[in-house]
Amino acid sequence: MAVIQVQRKPLSLAERTYIPQVIGGLLTTIKYFFRPSETLQYPEQRPAIPPGYRGVPTLVMDPHGREKCVSCQLCEFVCPPKAIRITPGSVAQGAGVDHVEKAPQAFDIDMLRCIYCGLCEEVCPEEAIVLQNQFSMSGYGRSEMVNHKDRLYELGGTLPDKHFKWDKKKAAETGAGGHH
């Protein structure tokens, strides 16, 4: 690829005195001086969160209020800063979610480590961990910056489910696929 030498344009005398430029600059700044402020008054006014925003990772329930996470630990595996720590456990039989069997006993996300990359959301096969709109987190100590399971569900709430995977399974059990 040929290198094109760009000749710098020689400055005119007016430009070299620097004065027209300064005056032009002064005019520009004084113009802005009289324009209204663009600042968002943050705590009172909230910014519009664009779709796909990656806020604090949370755990969500499905519309039946059932926890979606099955503690497959893929997020723990994929998490680049190793912020997620899961202790798996089994769901008691007869809890109404028999097809799930497994749920996290403990689910901790260390927000001091989290880099909001969203890989956990990407990898989650159950769409249980979602980076939502919450963007501000604070605490008085390191321990307060670790979100435990109950806090994660509190932050996450319930999201509409597109698949109803486990409901379909239940329908299959009573329908054609059942073991009659």
Binding site: Q93, D98, H99, E101, K168, K169, A171, A172, E173, G175, A176, G177, G178, H179
Partner: peptide, 10 residues
């Protein structure tokens, strides 16, 4: 596309 078999799980 049919429903899968459901068998005893645990």
């Amino acid at each position: 596309i049919e429903q899968k078999n459901v068998k005893p799980k645990r």
